[in-house]
Every structure is written in C-alpha cells, then in structure tokens.
C-alpha cells in the first residue's frame, strides 16, 4: 500500500497547516511593501492627497492654526512659491508619516523586533516586541518615537509615544503626549492593513483614525536614497524656489 503514503502525508500536512492557521501561528510581515491602493491615482501631476479619513477633528486654538497653515499652502501654490515642509528640506518623515510609504517600505521581522526600512530618505524605524513601554518622561523625543508591539491573535498592536512635537503628519498640530496605535494584520494574500489611531487629548477633540493598506512586492529591492543635493531654496516666509546654477 505504498501509494497511500503520499496521500496520507499530504492530508496530514494540510491538516497541520490548517491547524497552524487556526491556532494563530505568528504571521510574517517580512518583505517589501508598497501602498495599496495607490493614494495618488493615475494622474501625472496629482494634487496633494487630502489627509486620510477626512482629516482630524482639532480643538482650538489648533483648529485655527491648522486652517491658517492650509490657507498659506494654497496661496503659495497659486503664487508658484509653495510653502516649505519637512520633506522639501530633506528632513525625515517621522511617525506616522513614514508608514504612508510614499516610496516602498521593507519590514524585517524577528521574534524580538520588527524593523521598518523606508526607501524614501533611507529611514529606519524599530518596533520592539513584547516589551514594557517606558514612561514618556524617560523617552528622548524623536522622529519615530518609541514603539512597542504585541500580538493579539493575528494582529500586531503597536503603540508609539515619545514623538517630537515639531515633526508633524501633514502639518497637523500635536502635543508631546500624542500616542499612535497601529493595528497591523494580513488581510489577504500579499495584503497588509494598518489601522492607525492617533490619541492626543490636548489637541484632538476625538481620536483620529485612518487606514493605510499595502501590497507585497517580492521582486522589488529597496534602493538607496540620500538627499544630499537639495536645490530648494527657502525665503523668510518659508516659500520655496529652485536653485538653477549647477554645482
């Protein structure tokens, strides 16, 4: 009955596989991911996409501050002198902007941490797994803050605090107490979802929630991106113009 062996083995493997899935074997997020669906659409010269999920609900005076910034941006666009923002100056994006993956991101997953490598500006972000979150007073404020993740079934829940107040997501005001919570899970073959919640009771009237989706691209290799030839020049009002003389 030797012919039966392979069939039994295949059946056993299938059952074991099903069991592993049902018992919540840790998902593997490792790989290179690009935003999906593409937030920019097919336009050759797309407008800046609006903030996700209709934007935040801000308290005063932050709501007025944010509205004025957006007015200045719109006027700058009309005048042909756009208002400078961090990436115009080759500054890192910080959290949660880095997870918007304007260029692809690579995730490296071990039992102890998940590392996010962003192609844009060659940025690195670390998420420590199953660790105690330090008190915010003990964290040196940074672009990506301090991130701790833990698995809840098939979902990785990541909390991030210790974010610099001046490093903003789409210009949205924030306080030093801001907390970002991400819920990452695989939603289909090669699909990853990141539900993001920003809590900041000082600034936000209610938590700001939105979702970034990603698609795996196993064939793409992240390339270098060192922003060392910035030809943008900034005037006193933060307006940008181009330096046209060659170096």
């Amino acid at each position: 009955m030797s012919w039966q062996f392979p069939r039994v083995a295949v059946l056993a493997a299938l059952l074991l596989g099903a069991h592993a899935a049902a018992s919540g074997a840790t998902p593997d997020f490792s790989g290179t991911w690009e935003r999906y669906p593409d937030p920019y659409g097919p336009e050759r010269f797309p407008e800046d996409p609006p903030p996700p999920a209709g934007g935040p609900t801000l308290k005063e005076p932050y709501a007025t501050e944010y509205r004025k910034l957006n007015q200045r941006k719109a006027e700058g666009m009309k005048k042909g002198k756009p208002v400078a923002d961090p990436s115009t100056q080759c500054l890192p994006e910080g959290m949660p902007t880095i997870m918007a993956a304007v260029y692809p991101i690579e995730l490296l997953q071990t039992s102890r941490e998940i590392v996010v490598l962003a192609e844009f500006l060659t940025q690195t972000r670390r998420i420590y797994l199953n660790e105690k979150m330090p008190a915010v007073e003990d964290i040196s404020p940074g672009y990506n803050g301090y991130s701790v993740g833990r698995w809840q079934g098939d979902t990785l829940v990541v909390e991030t605090i210790g974010l610099r107040e001046d490093v903003k997501f789409m210009g949205i005001p924030r306080s030093a107490q801001m907390k970002v919570t991400e819920r990452l899970r695989l939603t289909g073959p090669g699909l990853l979802e990141n539900q993001i919640t920003i809590d900041d009771p000082t600034v936000l009237a209610k938590p700001y929630q939105f979702t970034f989706g990603y698609k795996r691209n196993p064939e793409y290799r992240i390339m270098e991106y060192i922003c060392d030839n910035n030809r943008n020049r900034f005037d006193a009002e933060g307006g940008v113009s181009l330096e046209v003389a060659p170096k």
Binding site: E43, P46, P82, T88, S241, L242
Partner: peptide
C-alpha cells in the same frame, strides 16, 4: 507621475 516634493507649483 511627477509630484515634486516642493509641489508642482513652481
């Protein structure tokens, strides 16, 4: 697509 990081406005 070319959305310059200083926007297309220039």
């Amino acid at each position: 697509p070319v959305l310059a990081h200083h926007s297309f406005a220039m």
